[in-house]
Simulated assay, not measured.
Amino acid sequence: MSALSSSLVFLIQILGSLYIMAVLLRFILQLVRADFYNPISQAIVKITAPLLNPLRKIIPGVGGMDIASLVLALALQIGLIYALYMLQGFALAAIPFPTVLFLSLRELAVEVLNIYMFSLIVIAIASWVAAGSYNPGLMLLHQITEPLSSRIRKIIPPVGGLDFSLMVLVLIIITLKNFIAAL
């Protein structure tokens, strides 16, 4: 593969992954009922609206879950995998759809776990560096992770002012990622 095509593959992979992450973040933000007046939430809504709004007219939400965003993320991931294989010289017929579907689902699951893991790490670092400060990004990360953290706190309460729920969640996420990687 030439340097130009290698750079093109890298660029398409990064841009495609970032957009898919934005769609997944929009799903998560709606699922946890995050503050949509937050400037970061507003940016995610504006970025994802052109592709998501037409799809929402066809695919309704179910039980407070935005199914259209999940369908869009899956379709984009499938398209990204096919595009990357084509750019690397593979014929579309050589790649069976069930394999691409499985790879797409696995990649989306890992991406959701990465969103949560990096959110937890940023929250932990911010609690050491800027405890109690207001930042729209940190507030959004707290809103994303709090439903899971509060469940862990019910099992393992804070001890001596130390909250171990973030560490437990990161360990659970790493375990899940290892399990998914083994599939």
Rank of each mutant, 00 (worst) to 15 (best):
Y134I: 00
L29M: 08
Q88V: 15
T175A: 08
K57S: 14
A75K: 10
H142D: 11
F164N: 04
G160N: 00
R151C: 14
P147M: 08
V32K: 07
V100T: 03
L25G: 09
L141C: 11
Y37Q: 11
S149D: 09
S104D: 01
G61Q: 04
I12S: 03
P147Y: 10
V71A: 06
F118Y: 13
S2W: 01
L29K: 01
Q77H: 00
G89Q: 13
S150R: 08
F179V: 13
L108T: 14
D66H: 03
L15F: 00
S127G: 14
I28Y: 11
E111F: 02
N135L: 02
I12F: 09
S133M: 01
I40R: 01
A130F: 08
L72G: 03
V71F: 14
F179W: 05
P96C: 06
Q42A: 09
V129P: 01
A91C: 05
L31T: 02
I123K: 08
A34I: 04
N38Q: 08
Q77L: 02
I180S: 02
V159A: 13
S149F: 06
R106D: 03
V112C: 10
I12K: 01
A131Y: 08
A3F: 12
A49H: 05
Q13A: 00
S7G: 15
I28H: 01
M65D: 10
I95M: 15
G79A: 10
A34N: 02
A43W: 00
L18P: 06
L52H: 07
S17K: 00
N135G: 05
V129R: 02
Y37N: 12
P96T: 06
N135V: 01
I152L: 14
Y85Q: 11
P157L: 12
L183C: 11
G161I: 11
R151G: 15
M117G: 09
L183N: 11
L4S: 00
I20Q: 10
L24G: 08
A22M: 10
L171Q: 01
S119L: 04
N38D: 13
V170T: 12
L25K: 03
L84N: 04
S17F: 01
S7T: 08
Q13G: 05
L138V: 12
L24I: 14
K46T: 14
I12R: 08
L176P: 14
A68G: 09
T48I: 00
L105P: 01
A181K: 07
L72E: 14
Q88M: 15
L55C: 05
T175D: 13
G16W: 07
V71G: 02
A43E: 06
I115K: 03
L25R: 06
I28M: 13
F27W: 09
I44H: 04
L74T: 13
V32S: 07
V122W: 03
Q88I: 14
Y116Q: 04
P96A: 11
F164E: 02
G132A: 00
I173P: 05
S150C: 06
L15G: 02
S69F: 14
N178I: 07
R153P: 00
